[in-house]
Design a protein around this nucleic acid. Structure first.
Length: 493
RNA sequence: GCCGCCUUAGCUCAGUUGGUUAGAGCGCCUGCUUGUGGAGCAGGAGGUCCUUGGUUCGAGACCAAGAGGCGGUACCA
């Protein structure tokens, strides 16, 4: 005889960095997405959905290699041996889509999209390996006009989300300015200088956390942190470090003043000049449209991660109602941003295709809104029609249907168990009103409506079970044809 | 990736210098009560003590490796 075999039971567990999302989170996230979509639509953007998987080479250079096979991107081999990757953002797939259908699309092509993106990285607090992004992009429009529009879209979404002006700020910078300054410091604006430029960007990004000294170290030789880990520096010369630090602190609350300051800083570099001109144009368009400095400012410390940005970049930042010592609103953090990425589509086509976009992290935005107390009330739980008598189920369903027709969320108990169990279920669901119809009520053409929170409250004064049972607190019996009206009224308060 | 801390019931945790059958509170289920939530009372289910290997007469406890979790740092298209 074979040994007694244990049945195989899989462990009910979830891969790290992936989340199950509860009802309230889903509701507030879909509500935010709906508001953002409304803004995108109002600006004339069209919806588009691309698939979760793309060919790995279409997404970028993040092919799995022998040394670090699982860094950054989730990849697997198709049955034809081609590498597929889960998208890590919505921008790279858009570039592929536009390149694939280039001739058939109107230019500029303007689309919006929300969807899950996947990053194969170590998850952390508020950081997951799957999360939802919500984007809009304009492909095929150069200059700074489309960028100005994206900035307006970002500010309008903040408003649509329920924030008042002053609770958010769009901060705008331009990659070309830094390119120009680095060029003057001997970092060529070519492939050869790209690693160094990246290191400079990463260093500037840490200004908040490390302060000027730390950033200075990262711009120069490098820096060792408390755990003894060493970060290699950008190895700029002292003059270059000074120029970069001077640039990052050059902005002023007044946009035109900042443009003037920058104009002096970039010197003779063509690229730098271009960057200044673009900011000046953005300012003109924003000002003419009524986007004042309280909503959009120029901020030379804005970096936007790294990678493919080639021109104007911006972040949507949320601000707490409290202010710091200098009277400025406290930053809650960046919940989204965007910028110009002129090289992403041309990767596929070999000819220049300008593009610009905006993207925000949906759950990050929602949790910031929660912290700011700017979320709306949760959905009301349903009215529960309890099942006293299974023979009366047709009546229960008819009653629930009438309640729904009156705009009331209603549910017939579909499980098994006596009324005790059903009321426990109702408690657990947070139900406010339960409808009780036994044969007595049914024959009399009546329904009993029980107010559960009120009943629970009244129960506190009751000592004995007999008293509890005979009191039957917080319920009333009404004629059945008045049920919907009475319930609607009782739900009001 | 690097550094540190942690892992015993659904949850929060106790568990003596290594010693019989691993505990508590809360939660959950059943009954008292086949037409009513709470309280009370009575009963019950639930554990590969994260995994594997080692030390030992004996390991939940000690050692090693791994996994998972948390925090920091790096990275974040």
């Amino acid at each position: 005889m074979a040994k007694k075999q244990k049945p195989f039971r899989p462990k009910a567990r979830r891969p790290r960095g992936f989340e199950d999302r509860p009802a309230d989170a889903i509701r507030s996230e879909t509500a935010l997405i709906a508001k953002a979509f409304a803004v995108y639509e109002s600006f004339g953007f069209e919806p588009l959905q691309t698939p979760a998987f793309e060919y790995a080479d279409a997404l970028g250079k993040f092919l799995p290699d022998e040394d670090r096979p699982n860094v950054g991107v989730f990849a697997l081999q198709d049955d034809d041996e081609q590498w597929l990757s889960l998208r890590y953002d919505l921008t790279a797939p858009l570039a592929r889509f536009v390149a694939e259908h280039y001739d058939a699309l109107p230019k500029p092509f303007r689309r919006y999209q929300a969807g899950s993106v996947f990053r194969n990285e170590k998850p952390g607090p508020g950081r997951f390996r799957e999360f939802t992004q919500c984007d809009a992009d304009t492909v095929g429009a150069g200059g700074a006009v489309a960028d100005a529009e994206m900035i307006m879209v970002a500010a309008e979404i903040a408003r649509a989300a329920g924030l008042s002006d002053g609770q958010y700020a769009v901060r705008v910078n331009n990659r070309k300015l830094l390119d120009g300054i680095l060029e003057a410091s001997g970092v060529p604006n070519t492939q050869a200088g790209s690693v160094q430029r990246l290191q400079v960007l990463r260093a500037i990004d840490k200004l908040d956390r490390l302060g000027e000294d730390g950033v200075e170290a990262l711009l120069g030789k490098g820096r060792e942190d408390e755990s003894g880990d060493y970060t290699d520096g950008a190895k700029l010369d002292p003059a270059g470090i000074k120029a970069v630090l001077g640039f990052t602190t050059a902005s002023d609350p007044d946009r035109q003043a900042t443009v003037a300051t920058l104009s002096g800083l970039v010197g003779p570099s063509d690229r730098g000049r271009q960057g200044v001109d673009e900011l000046a144009e953005i300012d003109r368009l924003l000002s003419a449209t009524g986007f004042g400095p309280d909503r959009v400012s120029f901020d030379t410390s804005v970096v936007r991660g790294l990678g493919y940005y080639t021109g104007p970049v911006f972040e949507l930042e949320l601000l707490a109602d409290i202010t710091d010592r200098k009277g400025r609103p406290v930053r809650i953090g960046s919940i989204g941003g965007g910028g110009r990425y002129d090289d992403l589509v041309s990767r596929f086509r070999g000819q220049p295709v300008p593009a610009t976009g905006f993207s925000f992290g949906v759950s990050r935005f929602v949790s910031a809104l929660e912290r700011m107390g700017a979320v709306e009330a949760a959905v009301q739980p349903p009215v529960l029609v309890t099942v006293f008598d299974r023979g009366l189920l047709p009546h229960y369903f008819a009653l629930a249907s009438e309640l729904r027709a009156a705009g009331i969320r209603a549910e017939v108990f579909t499980g098994s168990g006596n009324v005790t169990k059903q009321l426990k279920y109702a408690d657990r669901r947070g139900v406010k009103l339960a409808v009780l119809v036994g044969s007595d009520e049914h024959e009399a053409g009546e329904v009993t409506i029980k107010d559960l929170p009120l009943g629970a409250d009244m129960a506190k004064a009751i000592e004995t079970n007999e008293e509890w049972k005979s009191a039957r607190p917080a319920q009333r019996t009404v004629p059945r044809d008045q049920a919907a009206a009475v319930i609607a009224e009782m739900l009001e308060d």
